[in-house]
Design a protein around this nucleic acid. Sequence first.
DNA 1: CGTGTCCTTGACATGATTCAAGGTACGTGG
DNA 2: CCACGTACCTTGAATCATGTCAAGGACACG
Lengths: 244, 244
Amino acid sequence: MTLHSTNPEGRKPVIRCAACPIADRAVCSYSTARELSLLEAIKTYRTYLPGDEIQATGETAPQVGSVVEGIVSLSRLMADGRRQMVGLLFPGDFLGRATRETAPYDAIAVGQVTLCQFDRRRFETLLRESPALNRRLLDMTLDELDAAREWMVLLGRKTAREKIASFIALTARRSRAPETPEGLHIALPLTREAMADYLGLTIETVSRQIGALKRDGLIILIDARHLVIPDLDALGAEAGDDVV
Amino acid sequence: MTLHSTNPEGRKPVIRCAACPIADRAVCSYSTARELSLLEAIKTYRTYLPGDEIQATGETAPQVGSVVEGIVSLSRLMADGRRQMVGLLFPGDFLGRATRETAPYDAIAVGQVTLCQFDRRRFETLLRESPALNRRLLDMTLDELDAAREWMVLLGRKTAREKIASFIALTARRSRAPETPEGLHIALPLTREAMADYLGLTIETVSRQIGALKRDGLIILIDARHLVIPDLDALGAEAGDDVV
DNA sequence: CGTGTCCTTGACATGATTCAAGGTACGTGG
DNA sequence: CCACGTACCTTGAATCATGTCAAGGACACG
């Protein structure tokens, strides 16, 4: 089945697990070769275009799976249109909840996304028999919980400037940024609007605070979505985190 | 943590699991009688006084366990003294992480607290062999993650008035409040300061918004810590949540 | 009583939002 | 190839919600 459509959205040929780029971080990373072959038998790949809604609030998802490429945002929309992002999934992260049918937030593709998906019920069956999958899922959920709690501190107590500095520092950590003589070169994966929704700000405030960090020499803007961090420690100091 | 021999802080006689008030909600609620007897063999009870630090940020906890009575707050303290609460544990909730040695936040007793504790390493041994415990822990962690994400929406996007209304409505839901002819009668478990830390506000703003809800007839204050909700739906409408 | 903790209220300051305008980059159709 | 539309981003001025600072009240406890 090596048929590609012109549209990048849709099903894709299955990659062998042995060659999977996220094999060391994904939900299957504790699994034995035998278990991998069971997973391999039920997995399908699927790609989404930027802005595609992968799953809507309250919608029953027939599939769960791992993010292989790209970034997925999880966000909650209030009745009057206010939106708050509640999570950002990077490659290796798990999307969907094996033991729940629905999720109380929207999953939206940020940029182009490839997922390695499993039928939810078949995955759940495997889960019931596999301590390795169970344990891995628990560990990943604990990591997500830690990340959510760290974000609660940011949302509840940090200033706009600290929020922006935190986000840029986080991006630098998450994307192995190439180091040049001038500093770390990073690409911002989100639009100003998505950043605002992640940080609990408006897009104007995001724009102004990025401008302020630039004026203060903490970042060097190449264009709206690319920048250089001359001194990551100095930027981190603006983020208001105590040493962890 | 010093162990006082004087009541009420310290070790307590072990209650039989069969008579446990949180048996239906705790981490052991999926377990068979046989497994319960294994847990019973390693459990100890311990009580804490209001304000006691049950576990400090980064401190290695030799014990994990369930909240039996009282409320435990989880909070993060920033270097300059700003504090953000990142979770509230009610009876039945699990404190501590079986697969991690430390936690990045302080656990503090709100009011008097009784815990049913297990030695972390022995608990982990049981966990490795028990699908029921594993599954229950995963489900509870997913619930905590949902709660954390709901709180992110509150912290990032709600107004002070919505935050207060949300908190009072949450308290009404969590504590089976007695219904009187005038409405639901509830006790606020937190001081103004703790509410402020939970909601990402200052204590003055908390106090003013409670006053505003009172003036608008949405709540009737009995004293600073006790109030009546004449119409929970009306209060809920102030909380800014869409129907869930 | 006096002292400490918790809570409330007022006056004022300020950080972030809102409203408004314009700029840049990019793709599409004429 | 250019004009146009659209999405994304920036900037300024005014407003407003919330924080800050300050004072005092209520209550419990020794």
